[in-house]
Amino acid sequence: MSQGIHLSLTRRLAAVAAAIGLGLAAVLVTAVPASAHDELLVSDPADGASVEALPEEITLTFSAFPLDEPGATIVEVTDATGTDLTSGDPIVDGTQVTQALEGAATGVVSVLWKVVSSDGHPIDGEFTFTVAGGDPTPSATAPAEPSDTAEPTADDSTAPTDEVTATPAPAADGDESSPALVWTIAVVVLAALVAAVTYLIVSRSRRDRRERDLAQGRANAATGGDQRPDQD
C-alpha cells in the first residue's frame, strides 16, 4: 500500500511539474514577442530635422541587426512632388541601414522604410525632414525703402528653421512592453504555481500519514492490539 501511495504521489508531482512548465511557456510565448521586435532608434537626418541641402545619404540605426537578405530592406525617399531621390539599393551594415541619395530637393522630404527584424518579423515606419535651401530669389522690382513700420518679408524669416529640434524617429511597432515586465509576470506565475504545489504536497503527505495510522490501527485491532512484553 505504501508503494502505491508513493507511486500516486510521484504521478501527481509529475503532472504538477508539467503544468508549471506549460504555464510559464504560455506566459513567455504571449508576452515576449511584444518586446522582441527590433525598432528604429535614430535616423540621420532625424525626424523633423531641417538641413541646408539634400544629404548624400541617410542612415537608419536599429536596436538589433536587420536581416541582410536581398529585397528584405526597402528605403523610399521622395520630395514634396513625389520625385524619387534614392540612388541604388540600401546597404545593411550591422545595426545600420544606409541609403544613398541623388538629385536636389527643397521643402519636405519623406522617408518610408521597411526591414525584416532579427526575429524574422517585418517592421516599417516613416519620417520626414526639411531641406531649407533653394529659396526663390526676390523679384526684379525697385527695392522698397526701409521704414520703421515695414514688416519682415517671407524671405527674411528664418526663425522657424532654428526652432526645429532633432528627435529620434518613433518606433515602428506600437509594442512597448518591457522585458523586465515580462519576467516579473513569469516570476509571479511561477511563485503562485510553486505555492500551489507546496500546498498539494503538504496536504497529500498529511492525508497519507492519517491513512497509514488508520491502517495500522485496524491491523492492530485485527491482531488483538499492540503486543507488549509481559509485566511481572
Results as ranks from 00 to 15, higher is better:
residue 10 T to L: 03
residue 12 R to M: 03
residue 19 A to S: 11
residue 30 T to S: 05
residue 32 V to E: 05
residue 33 P to M: 06
residue 37 H to M: 14
residue 38 D to P: 14
residue 39 E to I: 08
residue 40 L to C: 09
residue 42 V to N: 06
residue 49 A to I: 04
residue 49 A to D: 14
residue 51 V to D: 14
residue 53 A to M: 05
residue 63 S to R: 00
residue 65 F to R: 12
residue 65 F to P: 02
residue 65 F to E: 09
residue 77 V to M: 01
residue 81 T to R: 10
residue 82 G to M: 04
residue 86 T to A: 07
residue 88 G to R: 01
residue 89 D to W: 02
residue 89 D to G: 07
residue 92 V to Q: 04
residue 100 A to T: 15
residue 101 L to H: 07
residue 104 A to G: 09
residue 106 T to N: 15
residue 108 V to E: 15
residue 114 K to G: 15
residue 115 V to R: 01
residue 116 V to L: 05
residue 118 S to M: 06
residue 121 H to W: 12
residue 123 I to V: 12
residue 125 G to D: 04
residue 126 E to N: 11
residue 129 F to Y: 05
residue 144 A to I: 01
residue 144 A to W: 02
residue 151 E to G: 10
residue 155 D to W: 06
residue 162 D to T: 14
residue 164 V to P: 05
residue 173 D to K: 05
residue 176 E to S: 13
residue 178 S to C: 08
residue 180 A to G: 10
residue 181 L to M: 12
residue 183 W to D: 13
residue 184 T to V: 05
residue 194 V to D: 01
residue 194 V to L: 06
residue 199 Y to M: 15
residue 201 I to P: 11
residue 205 S to L: 14
residue 205 S to Q: 13
residue 206 R to Q: 08
residue 213 D to Q: 10
residue 220 N to K: 14
residue 222 A to D: 14
residue 222 A to S: 13
residue 223 T to R: 01
residue 224 G to S: 04
residue 224 G to W: 01
